[in-house]
Design a binder for these strands. Structure first.
Length: 598
RNA sequence: GGUUCCGUAGCUCAGCUGGAUAGAGCAACAGCCUUCUAAGCUGUGGGUCCCAGGUUCGAAUCCUGGCGGAAUCACCA
């Protein structure tokens, strides 16, 4: 039983004896005692003053006295204006330390294998352009949330839904067919996704030229001109040929997509994310159409005179949603209906998490309602993890203005900065070339990932390419550095004294700083559960920063290896060891590696 | 216009289901390396928690109404 539960039970007991009735269980909540007061746990007693008909001070004192008497782990208490601060015994904290210092999985719960899984969809790229900063936030969130769910005992299936068909794909295909002269990644040395992206840009450039010409000649609006532009008509024709399985078109499509996938694979690998299953829209969009047709037969959807099929949503006070165009082709919503069904058939998950930007909030709320109308049992299992935009100092990223921050370029820059700073500090003089490269990658990505994940997912965030590459303060490298420092101490201490250490724990007394650190480490398992429940890596990021900061204070103030009292020295080694484990495990939940030297 | 989200120090962000005097980092200034890694530590200055009501013993946090910003409401994805 956790100590909080034990104390809560005792509090409940005391109140029952005095007042005759037990307080509601939810009213007994503990918080960490604030630094300026003495104690480890604080109970707010205001909720009980009415029940006991006494002043907050009296209530706090009464409960405090009873707890010291009845709960052996509670050593003393003080009360300030209705706040009951209690201290736990050194024995309790040292016991916690000894039990966990060797626990590689500290903070992680074992998977409940019987439970149906949670499916997490993330990344979901289009195959017409390379990944950029926005995708990075998506990928990091999706990966981290998956790890969080795993660490709190869930079975998790990570899936990617690749949007590999549609008019946008046809645009880059068309440009390549018209202007490409057979260029391939091999012939040009370009990364496949970059090459295809270049042709997408080329299409847009040529298209704009045509539109401008049409507007000038015919004096019509831009939207109208766009519809008439020959390139646009050709792209639409290409889509129709693709849907008709035209051999030539399908070949080009397969070839260009394979280039893109090779490019994505490299980016994913560098980013450190992966998937258990990849869905392709080209495989699933027809299923959605079938389901919609079923809905039509059952009468939950309706057909307009022009042949288009709609879901009526007036009962939810929102506009009806088109599900099939008048020409019978499907839209984005149709396809998502299909993939939801497929996912349900594949895994019967208890929850389906979609990591998708907040610009699609409306889309997902409609998706749930449509699935509900269709009578699908999994409509409630759909959860849209909606995250905010990544903005640049100049505002939103715009491909037209060339302000898109490319994922590969960004990772290169981060590693480059890591290399420059590390060399300046002279930290890697005895590193081999491979070791250096690996380290700079770890630090550069650590900085990037931490920077992005420490922000609450639902908030928009600002990314300043000039300033964001900070390695001091509340940053990934700071936390990695703390870890490397601890490793250095542990290396010097050697294996033997560390394994012997728990035996001598009994003889040590924790000072305030040490106790504060242990207290923070103690919170880690609960923190993982909370972060998983909220699907918020930011909680872990901010927590692990606090751990690192507290350790550095302790490290600065007290000597570990040069402490003469052997009991103290050993205890501090244990404390350092558990701190390192906590930092490592927390960072791994964020998808961030930690180096043993830096 | 409807809906949803956001608004906390000069800047970037924390602040858990309501709890004590609202916290970090960056930037500025002042200190600390013959001692386990100074990517560190310590200190100083910096706040109308957007505004106004309400609920409560207690509100940055919950409710209502404003103001400001973002997203969305496509036979786009």
């Amino acid at each position: 039983m956790k100590i909080e539960e034990k104390i809560a039970a005792a509090v409940s007991e005391v109140i029952k004896e005095l007042a005759g009735t037990e307080p509601e269980p939810g009213k007994i909540v503990f918080q960490k005692t604030r630094k300026e007061f003495r104690g480890d746990l604080t109970l707010v007693v205001f909720p009980f003053t009415k029940l006991l008909k006494r002043s907050p001070e009296e209530v706090a004192d009464t409960i405090g006295r009873a707890l010291v008497e009845r709960v052996e782990e509670v050593s003393e208490f003080n009360s300030v204006k209705g706040f009951l601060n209690m201290s736990l015994t050194g024995r309790f904290w040292l016991g916690f330390l000894g039990e966990n210092m060797d626990n590689d999985k500290f903070g992680y719960a074992a998977a409940e294998t019987q439970q149906p899984p949670v499916v997490v969809e993330y990344s979901s790229p289009n195959t017409n352009k390379p990944l950029h900063l926005g995708h990075i936030r998506n990928n990091l969130l999706g990966y981290s949330v998956s790890r969080l769910l795993e660490a709190s005992g869930n079975n998790v299936v990570k899936v990617n839904l690749v949007n590999d068909r549609g008019i946008h794909i046809c645009k880059s295909m068309l440009a390549w067919m018209k202007y490409g002269k057979g260029e391939t990644p091999q012939s040009s040395g370009k990364k496949g996704d970059k090459l295809v992206g270049d042709y997408y840009v080329r299409f847009e450039t040529e298209l704009r030229r045509q539109i401008a010409g049409i507007i000038e000649k015919e004096d019509i609006g831009e939207d109208e001109a766009r519809k008439k532009a020959p390139l646009m008509l050709e792209a639409q024709d290409l889509l129709r040929r693709w849907e008709a399985r035209d051999k030539e078109v399908v070949e080009v499509w397969e070839m260009m997509n394979s280039w893109v996938y090779a490019g994505f694979d490299l980016t994913y690998r560098r980013l450190g994310v992966d998937f258990d299953k990849i869905y392709y829209e080209s495989d699933t969009y027809l299923l959605g159409r079938d389901i919609v047709m079923e809905g039509l037969e059952k009468g939950v959807m309706y057909k307009k005179d022009d042949g288009s099929v709609w879901a009526g949503l007036s009962e939810y006070k929102i506009d009806d949603k088109l599900l099939l165009r008048s020409d019978g082709t499907s839209v984005y919503m149709t396809q998502d209906i299909g993939t939801a069904q497929l996912r349900y058939d594949d895994f019967t998950p208890r929850q389906m998490v979609y990591v998708v930007g907040n610009e699609q909030n409306h889309h997902f709320s409609v998706l749930r309602k449509v699935l509900d109308k269709l009578g699908k049992p999994y409509s409630d299992a759909i959860y849209h993890l909606s995250y905010g935009m990544v903005e640049l100092p100049a505002g939103k990223m715009k491909s037209r203005e060339g302000t898109v921050v490319d994922a590969d370029d960004l990772m290169d820059e981060m590693a480059g900065t890591a290399a420059r700073i590390t060399e300046e500090l002279g930290k890697t003089q005895d590193f081999s070339k491979e070791e250096k490269e690996s380290l700079y990658h770890i630090i550069g990505l650590g900085a990037l990932k931490y920077f992005i994940l420490k922000v609450d997912p639902k908030k928009n965030m600002l990314f300043n390419p000039e300033e964001s590459v900070d390695f001091n303060g509340n940053t990934g490298p700071f936390i990695q550095y703390t870890y490397a420092r601890i490793c250095s101490v542990l290396r010097k201490a050697g294996e033997e004294s560390l394994t012997k250490a728990p035996d001598s724990l009994g003889g040590a007394v924790l000072n305030e700083k040490e106790k504060q650190l242990v207290r923070t480490l103690y919170d880690f398992p609960a923190m993982v559960r909370e972060a998983a429940a909220e699907l918020s890596p930011a909680r872990i990021a901010n927590y692990v920063y606090e751990v690192a900061r507290e350790f550095n204070q302790f490290y600065h103030d007290y000597s570990i290896l040069n402490e003469e009292d052997k009991n103290l020295s050993d205890m501090r080694l244990c404390l350092s060891s558990l701190t390192a484990l906590t930092i490592r495990n927390a960072m791994l939940l964020l998808g961030i590696e930690v180096p043993e030297r830096m």
